[in-house]
Simulated assay, not measured.
Amino acid sequence: MEPAEITALTVVFFIAAVEICCFFVISKLRGKSYPLYTVIPVFAEDSELSQRLSYIGSLIEDGSSLTEHIILIDCGGTAEQLELCRTFCTSHHAAELILPEEIEETLRNYQHFH
């Protein structure tokens, strides 16, 4: 065998070994994932709520978000903001709009699912 052939085979075997190792490492990490929750308080003063919800929605749609649940907390939001939140919750089933006094109960319910 020529030195160039030996080098090429060595490189190919090395790449294959790295791919196999990465496959097993990634599959092990997926089995250890834990649910993440995103909590967004909705204040009347928040002028960027629409952009924030659009951003989170785009992360969910393209699959780059690890968030499993989105909790929107009505902390005195305007009627327009709350309607925006309701629309977001309708289009993203992982989202829920709650009142501040419902936080503990909501988190307990999520704990029972996992």
Rank of each mutant, 00 (worst) to 15 (best):
Glu105Ile: 09
Glu96Met: 00
Tyr34Pro: 01
Leu29Val: 10
Gln111Gly: 09
Glu19Ile: 14
Glu5Gln: 12
Ile26Asn: 10
Pro3Arg: 09
Leu49Arg: 04
Ser47Asn: 14
Ile60Leu: 08
Glu96Val: 08
Cys85Met: 00
Gln111Glu: 12
Val39His: 00
Tyr110Ile: 12
Tyr110Phe: 15
Gly76Asn: 03
Glu68Phe: 14
Lys32Thr: 08
Ile73Trp: 03
Ile6His: 07
Leu72His: 05
Ile98Phe: 00
Cys22Lys: 12
Glu102His: 02
Pro41Gln: 05
Ile103Tyr: 03
Gly31Lys: 14
Ile73Val: 15
Asn109Ile: 02
Leu9Arg: 14
Val42Arg: 00
Gln81Pro: 09
Asp46Phe: 00
Lys32Phe: 04
His112Pro: 06
Asp62Gly: 00
Leu82Cys: 05
Ala44Phe: 07
His112Ala: 08
Arg52Tyr: 05
Pro3Tyr: 09
Ile60Ser: 08
Tyr110Asp: 03
Tyr110Gly: 09
Ile103Gly: 06
Gln81Leu: 02
Leu72Arg: 01
Ala44Tyr: 11
Leu49Glu: 01
Leu107Ser: 08
Glu105Cys: 10
Lys32Glu: 11
Thr87Ala: 15
Gln111Ser: 13
Leu9Gln: 14
Glu101Arg: 09
Leu66Cys: 12
Pro41Thr: 00
Arg52Pro: 02
Ala4Asp: 03
His92Glu: 04
Glu104Tyr: 06
Ile73Ala: 00
Asn109Val: 11
Asp46Ile: 05
Cys89Asn: 08
Arg30Ser: 10
Ile73Asp: 01
His93Phe: 10
Val42Asp: 03
Ala94Asp: 06
Ala95Pro: 06
Thr87Ile: 07
Asn109Cys: 07
Gln51Met: 03
Phe88Glu: 06
Thr7Gln: 12
Glu2Ile: 10
Phe13Cys: 10
Ser91His: 15
Ser50Glu: 13
His112Glu: 13
Ala17Arg: 04
Val25Gly: 04
Cys85Lys: 03
Leu49Phe: 01
Thr38Glu: 12
Glu61Val: 06
Ile98Gln: 04
Ile71Arg: 06
Leu49Gln: 04
Asp46Tyr: 00
Leu97Phe: 00
Gly63Pro: 02
Cys85Ser: 04
Phe113Leu: 12
Phe43Glu: 09
Cys21Asp: 08
Tyr55Gln: 11
Glu2Thr: 15
Ser64Cys: 04
Thr7Phe: 12
Glu45Ser: 15
